[in-house]
Design a protein around this nucleic acid. Structure first.
Length: 233
DNA sequence: AATAAAGTCAACCGCACAGCC
DNA sequence: CGGCTGTGCGGTTGACTTTAT
């Protein structure tokens, strides 16, 4: 049995205070990112390493862009989600200054609803799947947790193009247009080469360190050989 | 003005993977 | 080779805010 990542007793949980933020920021500015397990103690924080990492990556990092998503960012997320499914870290990697958590939240709170309103199934980006108001909420609920806990951890990445079981047409087969004229993505001229995103400029760079967004999914050999993605290379 | 419902988002949790020993 | 550890990811939760009634 693996030890928990931290001794949960004596640990702060919940929202971060200004002082905690300051301690974490100061420490990372001095020593750089990494070694999250030992960082809290070294920085004088009563937090677990995972919590520190999350706080830094999603909130404190100086290159984190905060605020509303621009229209082109929205479009890009929708398009990337059609291609990649729920691989938020990869999607976020194409949006400078955005974090996977932020993209995920934005998708779940804004974009899913937007697509549903347009009659598009946000799970497979197909139109023509009739989504009744009742189904709407059901879809929201079920797909939000699709394939996660109920069947155990879903090790397969969400399949973006799995069939919906009807005659509905695929909305976003990469660059194809949408049948619904009211919904047309601008030609974003996406460069979807999966080049590594440059790591955070704030952290002292260690050549051995992995780029921030080199996710496990991008390491998947099948990932790069995806026919859809190759279209963009 | 009060309350319920809906929406938002920061943070937590559990799991998987890579690397080290 | 197998176990252990550190890290990163995606899903989920719950507190807080906003909107509707």
């Amino acid at each position: 049995m693996r030890k928990p990542c931290c001794d949960k007793q004596d640990m702060n949980k919940g929202a971060w205070s200004k002082q905690e933020d300051q301690k974490l920021t100061d420490y990372i500015q001095k020593h750089g990112e990494g070694c999250w397990r030992t960082l809290p103690q070294a920085a004088g924080l009563l937090r677990c390493g995972k919590s520190c990492r999350l706080r830094w990556i999603n909130y404190l990092r100086p290159d984190v862009k905060r605020g509303n998503f621009a229209d082109d960012e929205e479009d890009l997320i929708i398009k990337l989600h059609a291609l990649l499914g729920n691989r938020w870290s990869l999607i976020a990697g194409r949006l400078p200054g955005r974090t996977d958590n932020e993209v995920k939240n934005y998708w779940n709170s804004h974009l899913r609803r937007k697509l549903i309103k347009m009659g598009i199934d946000p799970n497979n980006h197909r139109i023509g799947c009739k989504i009744s108001p009742l189904q709407n909420s059901a879809t929201l609920d079920s797909s939000a947790s699709s394939g996660s806990k109920e069947n155990g951890k879903n090790t397969e990445p969400t399949k973006p193009h799995d069939g919906c079981g009807t005659n509905c047409d695929l909305v976003s087969d990469a660059a194809s247009g949408l049948e619904d004229e009211s919904y047309s993505l601008p030609d974003l001229n996406l460069d979807l080469n999966m080049s590594m995103v440059s790591p955070s400029p704030c952290a002292p760079q260690d050549d051995n360190k992995k780029p921030i967004h080199e996710s496990k999914t991008s390491r998947d050999p099948h990932f790069f050989s995806s026919p859809t993605l190759l279209l963009f290379q």
